[in-house]
Amino acid sequence: MLLEINDLDITYGDNTPTVENVKLSLNEGEILTIVGESGSGKTTVIRSILGLLSGDGHVSKGTLSFKGRDLKTLSLKEWRELRGKDISMIFQDSGNMLNPVQTIGHQFREYIQLHSDMSDSEADAKAVEILKRMHLPNAENILSSYAFELSGGMRQRVGIAMAITFHPQLLLADEPTSALDVTTQAQIVKELMQVVKESGTAMIMVTHNLGVASYMSDKLMVMAGGRVLEYGNARDILTNPQSNYTKTLLASVPTIGGKRYV
């Protein structure tokens, strides 16, 4: 088992837990999607895996183990080695994680050299190779660009490229395609699937697009109000939802050629 989470409670400040009793497990190469509406705690769950809860959020109960290591006992140095290499993350808008006053190439090189002892030219060559894998044309041009000069879809491809540089064993993705329009979303989803399958990476994705969840996932978790309503095989849940909330969610998804209100 690559990742195993049991009885996880997450608390912000001294209040009652925001997220309660989360249990999940993930094998190598498996894709788990967490769906639920805003404020249901889905982002909190994946942030806790990377030890990156915002503010005074902390794990108040339960265990998180990654390849048999207890994530709660890691030192800062151990976290630094793990983050970005064995476990990496893709954000909703990768433009926000990039430094606006440094070129993409500068940041990419810095990131690669942090986790390896490559020379500048080796690191640049590596960056170009990975950007090409994400179907970005003119990878050299992109390295000399600033984040604001790229479109949303291109920025997102850069973010994914950086996240998969070291073939992470676990990839966390927080709404990786929600800010994109449908055609770009479709391309990114397919490219993401391809790179994940090629490198045998396990992935946990947060989304509220049930179509994307259905296309990508092996496992599915439905959350509402900080609790897990359903967890298990994605196909089973989508074809035979148990909770009323999941049923409502599925009924809300518009389909082309389906129901019409007018």
Partner: peptide, 24 residues
């Protein structure tokens, strides 16, 4: 027409339609 969207034969509209992920 809104109710004829699925029947469109225009290549660009088809591209957009095909880009939508359906749940089932």
């Amino acid at each position: 027409d809104g109710d004829k969207l699925a029947e469109s034969t225009h290549p660009y509209t088809r591209d957009l339609l095909n880009a939508v992920f359906s749940v089932h």
